[in-house]
Write a protein that binds this DNA or RNA. Structure first.
Lengths: 233, 233
DNA sequence: GGTGACAAAAAGTCAGACTTATTCATCACG
DNA sequence: CGTGATGAATAAGTCTGACTTTTTGTCACC
């Protein structure tokens, strides 16, 4: 995924971004453009472009006569897909995963409710197809296939909500679900109850039952929270 | 409060960003770096830095031999504070305001519930202070003072949730609330019921009653939705 | 009609010189 | 002593021009 190697400045970012988001430079640390350019063996122009990008992510601030200072974590643009990916690849991956899962638990039920109101018939069909795909891959260690349909399912829900802010979280959810399968929990077949819930959500959306779609999705996200030992109220 | 005039490339962005987010260039439009540099009377280096930033916001894509092509709206990083500001300042401000208010309605109740569990005593004190400030400015056309405390209130809630993703939405909520007061609805004193709800939320958080804090906040956000004629389920 | 070579176009890269704002230290003055 | 002005050092900011690389479109040729 991502967009690696789109030029020299991209390569610089692929190294420097993870370093910063991993907290290797404490807030207030000062980097010098010239030194960085030397370190990465690129020209100052290229280095400057990379710094501009980091600046637009609120990871650093460039000031005359001072240098490039690292901003405190609390100011980072944590919704930037690139930042999310860097952090998921780094040391505070568990923390990031928890934050994102809580975010999901807030967004997805509401999105499902809206989807029940706004989904087109094509989207309903896609949803059903995804749910059936999940069922088909729910037994016998077909985790890759299951994941594929799971991701697609949640993507469709978010898009069908008709809210662009929700729709853009599709990538984030995909990242979380993928990470969960690849690294963390879920060593064996998925929880049958979760699979059933997805099927029921698809039904509720098709039926236009917003309240039911919302509640069922809430149950799904509560399950996700519990997997990470995050207590549900 | 943005960060205007942080260099020539910033000035370019202040013009070009709003143009793109306003949809002046349809998706797939091609811009040339050299022409843009001429238009803004800056060097190519400066123009390239600006393009890099636009690229990191997924507004454009720069490809060799082709030029800088504008991406479809569906790919924009709509969570970038800069993009949000540009769009709020532009033509589809109403649409943006609706999206963000729906987002609020999903996030803030959950955040309030978490705040009831995690808020420090200092945060509880701040919250009460904000709520009282709202009460004090709720009558007699003191909209500026009311807004100030309202913004602070929601900021504290989001921060007290302990979730960094929620915390970073403080600026967005501030933007929405400010916009609402300055341009749109709310010509006279705020709804007394809303004021009361804020006080009650502060109480619930202090008491550690997560369910009550969540439900009361949900009522607040439902009110915000209704102000924009967005039907509540 | 498909295939491959060639040429044009635009972004990408680099090096070097110059400008400008900011900070810090020094020093004179109250 | 403090305090404020002065000036020098510093690192980012900017510009220019030359060169490279990749991609694409075209055109001849099979």
């Amino acid at each position: 995924m991502s967009t690696p190697g789109r030029g020299l400045h991209g390569h610089v970012l692929d190294t420097l971004g993870p370093e910063i988001t991993a907290g290797e430079y404490p807030p207030g640390s000062v980097l010098r453009t010239d030194e960085l350019a030397q370190r990465f063996d690129v020209s100052r122009s290229v280095m400057r472009e990379a710094v501009r990008v980091l600046e637009s992510m609120y990871l650093v601030e460039s000031r005359r006569r001072v240098g490039v200072t690292v901003r405190p974590k609390s100011e980072w643009n944590v919704y930037d897909p690139q930042v999310i990916r860097w952090r998921l690849a780094g040391a505070d991956r568990p923390r990031q995963l928890r934050s994102l899962t809580v975010l999901r638990s807030a967004i997805e039920p509401v999105a499902a409710g809206l989807a029940a109101r706004h989904a087109t018939s094509e989207q309903c069909a896609e949803l059903t197809e995804c749910a059936l795909g999940m069922v088909a891959h729910s037994r016998g260690h077909k985790l890759e296939g299951y994941l594929l349909h799971d991701v697609a399912f949640h993507r469709v829900i978010l898009e069908a909500s008709g809210n662009e802010m929700f729709a853009r979280l599709g990538d984030v959810v995909a990242e979380v679900l993928t990470g969960r399968t690849q690294h963390d929990v879920m060593f064996e077949d998925p929880d049958p109850a979760a699979v059933t819930l997805h099927v029921q959500v698809a039904e509720a959306v098709r039926a236009g039952d917003a309240a039911r779609a919302e509640e069922l999705t809430r149950e799904i996200t509560v399950g996700a929270l519990q997997e990470l030992d995050i207590l549900a109220p």
